[in-house]
Simulated scan of single mutants.
Amino acid sequence: MPNKLKLGLIGIVEEEAKRDFWCTMGRVAGIGYRGIEGAEQLLEGNAEENVARFHSLGLQVLTCSASRELLREDLEGVIFRARQLHTNRVTIWWAPCDSAESIREDIELYNTAGTKLAAEGIKLCYHNHDHEFRNAFGGVTAMDLLAAGTDPAALFFELDIAWITYGGEDPARMLRKYAGRVPAIHVKDLHGLENQEHPFTTVGTGIVKLREAISTAADIGTEWMVVEQDQLRNLTAFETITASYLNLKEAGLI
């Protein structure tokens, strides 16, 4: 693997962060994480001072969250919050993709909003789940419709390798397919494909082809891999992020 991806984190320690944000972030940085997605707590109070303190821990804000409604109704507010957080990405975390018509409407929105964000130096990213690969219209998956219909300069993808696996696709193949449009990936693991409510496990302890996916992401120029686990399994939050870090390190992936 020619390059190694930078390591970020989303979720997992959110309850701990609610109780003591700065202590939690210090512990996260101490483990070896260098970026956080979902750090909107920094906007509370003096955002500039908060972000500077965040940076002093060795952490970056990797993205600013946005819904489709916010992109339509308050794009300037989205841009303002991204600027406050010193991040160059805005991410949409979910869309239903339940009909070809709804996807066409979303494509129009993403092209319009993404073009405006790009003019500000900000990448609009779409984060997948499994339904984008399961839902197909005219033999074309929702994910392929989104990719084909959007301007590559306006919409990028934050591919989740576990949800791709859960959706019946191969993560490395999808990464190669969307090469050039994947600034970050979500790295998480599944202990199986049968349990639809709680299939997740600590990174490196499940069935997701992590090495192949992460190596492919590095090959296509992805910058960040972000550890995520939708539900805890047998470990506590800090045990989970520590074990995930160590498993990736032991595998030579960080």
Rank of each mutant, 00 (worst) to 15 (best):
C125Y: 01
N50R: 02
L5G: 07
R81Y: 07
A172R: 00
D106E: 15
R34E: 14
L85H: 06
T87E: 08
E223F: 00
E40V: 04
L9T: 06
D20L: 11
I103K: 13
A82E: 03
H198C: 08
L109R: 11
I214M: 08
L117T: 08
G206W: 01
I10A: 08
T112M: 06
N3Q: 14
I36D: 05
K6T: 07
A100P: 06
G204P: 06
K249N: 10
E169N: 10
R68Q: 14
R104E: 14
H129S: 12
L235Q: 11
G149I: 10
A153L: 07
L9K: 04
R53P: 07
N128Y: 01
Y33F: 15
E14V: 08
V51C: 03
L75T: 09
I185Y: 00
L43Y: 15
K177M: 11
R68K: 14
H131S: 05
V226S: 02
G11W: 11
L193S: 08
Q196C: 05
I207T: 04
G77Y: 06
T222E: 02
R27D: 14
G30C: 04
L75H: 08
M174N: 08
V90Y: 10
R173Q: 10
Y110K: 00
K116S: 03
A118R: 12
H186W: 02
S65G: 12
G252D: 08
T165P: 04
K116T: 03
T24C: 11
G45P: 09
Y245T: 04
R72V: 04
Y126R: 06
T150H: 11
